[in-house]
Nucleic acid binder design. Structure first.
Lengths: 258, 258
DNA sequence: CGGTATTTTGAGTATCGTCAAGGCCAGTGG
DNA sequence: CCACTGGCCTTGACGATACTCAAAATACCG
């Protein structure tokens, strides 16, 4: 996982957008410009990438690891409102300060683009503009999915919906989901406290919910951060009316993995 | 920020975009193009503007009334994930089908733009592009605010946060908020059932919460759909850690209204 | 004025939050 | 190498809150 820093110097950085399949379809000239204003950053788990209210001077893209988008309450508590994984863009293009803080949930590598030049490039490249627009639009849909998830009244239901979304959304992210045979293996490198905040509950209740799912034979707890999904349809049923169209999403998932 | 409509008569209103201050700062040529591909539509309360999974042929902007963005569950229940008010844009630019249905919560008038030409215009006009991008970015932030709101464990807290956000966000929307002296008068033309879904609870619990707030002297119930906010700070306190930075938002609100 | 839909209220039950204690793991220091 | 310590996860018991079901009151509309 550790990247040798010497690999990053010189040519690797100049032409090194190969680690970002997100941009792979852009025209070479745009890629060239992008790589020119680009840099890499590494964050350890828990480090802050962007502070709330900060006017950051860069736009970022996650190339490895997980970032959490969170708000700090007046009383000091922190609530997570989103997670960013591989190929997720973040940054307030054309806009003012960030309204939420961004912290590394795991050791994370991000690709940065200087904001000013990126905005210029954005106005010149139709392709890049589309890319960014669609990315934000998708993020909006995901946020709304989260709202549906949080609207579920039972903690087990919210947890089931969460696991379901993870399977669907991060199906291709090797860090998080593996597919041994017919079951999924999820690794969620987030503390119980964080996960509880994310699902709008307390660590104790979340723990009970996790073990309730395990007792029902729906999941298997390999470690506190590693689950195996045994009964996918039961998960969907528990999620109840959580996801937008569980059926369609499930079909998509089945098509992808057989 | 209020633009006299007569000021626009030469450019915008002549072509009929004067009702949309959102676009007022765009260059005349773009306005011209916009009005050329534009139309008006009226919807009665309850009518569907866009079906879920539908690939709509237009991009819309609310000029009057309230739209609700909602998902239909497998069991038939409907959950609201967002509300659209005056000057809110909606539509999946460059993208596939809508993931959520859009219905009129009240009698609503929207301004439509044919999607293809709008996308073309978007790629040609930097200003319009920025406008759309910022609009979506703001919507994303609002969705995340909603997540914070829904993360509150008590129904009264969620309701308080909801009322707070309404005051802050629709402070200028005459349809919803009036400012008689020092108190706010909110009109929420949404059924209790819808409101309950929006806040992740049941109509009964919501009703109790509303009357609990009334008994505490925080609000006054004028009618089931019309409240007067009496103690704003108490509202904020009940919302607890709901909004991102209640303090700053409150200051903004105070500055706006004295 | 009457009929219908919506809101409100009430009583009982389930779920969840809270407080407290125990167990597991990793890092630390003797 | 082992005991200790601290953090995190888990478990248990209790109280508060919210959901369910049912009925009454109110508002809305013709």
């Amino acid at each position: 996982m550790s990247l040798n820093s010497s690999d990053l110097s010189g040519l690797a950085t100049a032409k090194g957008l190969g680690d970002l399949p997100l941009f792979s379809k852009l025209p070479p000239s745009v890629l060239d410009e992008l790589s020119r204003i680009s840099g890499r950053r590494l964050y350890g788990a828990g480090q802050t990438v962007v502070h709330a209210q900060e006017v950051s001077d860069f736009v970022g893209c996650v190339s490895r690891g997980i970032l959490r988008v969170q708000a700090t309450m007046p009383d000091g508590q922190q609530h997570i409102v989103g997670l960013l994984v591989e190929n997720d863009l973040f940054g307030r293009v054309f806009d003012g300060p960030h309204k939420f803080a961004i912290e590394a949930a795991t050791d994370t590598e991000i690709r940065t683009f200087r904001r000013g030049p990126f905005e210029d490039l954005l106005t010149h490249s139709v392709e890049l503009e589309r890319l960014v627009l669609l990315n934000i639009l998708n993020e909006l849909d995901r946020a709304r999915e989260w709202m549906l998830l949080l609207a579920n009244h039972r903690v087990t239901g919210r947890l089931a919906g969460f696991l379901f979304i993870l399977c669907r959304r991060w199906g291709k992210v090797t860090d998080v989901v593996q597919v041994p045979g017919q079951t999924f293996e999820l690794e969620i490198p987030v503390s119980r406290t964080d996960l509880a905040q994310l699902l709008g509950t307390r660590p104790e209740s979340l723990s009970r919910a996790v073990h309730a799912l395990a007792r029902s034979g729906i999941i298997r707890i390999e470690s506190p951060y590693k689950f195996e999904i045994l009964k996918f349809d039961a998960l969907v049923e528990l999620a109840g009316g959580d996801a937008i169209d569980t059926n369609q999403s499930f079909r998509t998932l089945q098509q992808r993995f057989g």
